[in-house]
Design a protein around this nucleic acid. Structure first.
Lengths: 145, 145
DNA sequence: CCTTGTGTTGAACCTCGCTTCAACTTGCAG
DNA sequence: CTGCAAGTTGAAGCGAGGTTCAACACAAGG
């Protein structure tokens, strides 16, 4: 049983391209030891980090944000269950928030399907004279960014 | 009460930058009539279209996909409630799917918090000898793309 | 009429998240 | 020892989704 992975192996097992792994390393998201001949050798824990990165990306988090989250993991020792749990909890909250937002969006859309209007919470058909037009130019149809 | 909007007004009320609106127009997502002096004048319905575009983006849909969805709306007449309802229904399904995915992700993460493992459904700690290593290189930690 | 604010265009530039390439080095099997 | 797959680097390129800029035209009030 081997104790370290080549970049090819990590790529195959994580499903992430080698070029992406090198890119992650440049950005400081993952780390590799080097052989005498300068080749990367990854610790098994790299699999977890990479999985975490891809999960986070799916949730729409930038690599830079992910990097700073991962920075909270100790570099000196193998992360413990507690270390990961801390991160997981933070991320869980983000997921919850994201889910809440999407659900709200869906429900708003549903609520407006009858009139075909997409103004969300400020239906223009229910409010034909733009009575809500306040704050300068007018009513915003915008979503919170 | 005015019946058309300048680009500045549309930008202010939709919360989308003028440059982005022009960009959307180049991509064929929105349309503007022109004054004698070649300035854009938007129909009120443009607000709906723009709102729809931003909503769709939030759900992770590319502008190209959005364009082709919007193409299903009749160019010749003002879209009816039914036209929008058709679109809304399609989009509602996408939202549902997205929400389902995120929920699953969250639950998987939760289920694994105890051990600090992030492998999702194939916990490496529960499976230390990599027994699932099949198909070539080994067990995948990958998420479905 | 003049000024000021809005609008117009195309071209260039930007960030993010990678991929591709060229030119070279390592590692391992036979 | 040879040969070939796998790894290394930096630089360049790409596609999405815009923003910025320069140089110019139009609109509305005083």
């Amino acid at each position: 049983m081997q104790e370290s992975l080549t970049i090819g192996q990590l790529a195959a097992r994580s499903g992430v391209a080698q070029s992406a792994l090198r890119y992650y390393e440049r950005l400081g998201l993952i780390h590799a030891d080097r052989t005498g001949g300068n080749q990367r050798r990854y610790h098994r824990s790299a699999l977890r980090r990479v999985a975490f990165i891809r999960i986070s990306q799916q949730v729409g988090i930038s690599l830079e944000e992910i990097r700073s989250a991962l920075d909270s993991l100790p570099a000196s020792r193998t992360p413990t269950a507690d270390d990961w749990a801390r991160l997981s909890t933070t991320w869980r909250n983000r997921l919850d928030e994201k889910i809440r937002l999407l659900s709200q969006l869906r429900d708003d859309l549903d609520g407006c399907i009858g009139c075909g209007c997409l103004s969300l919470r400020r239906c223009a058909l229910n409010n034909p004279d733009d009575e809500l037009a306040g704050e300068g130019p007018g009513a915003r149809l915008t979503l919170p960014r």
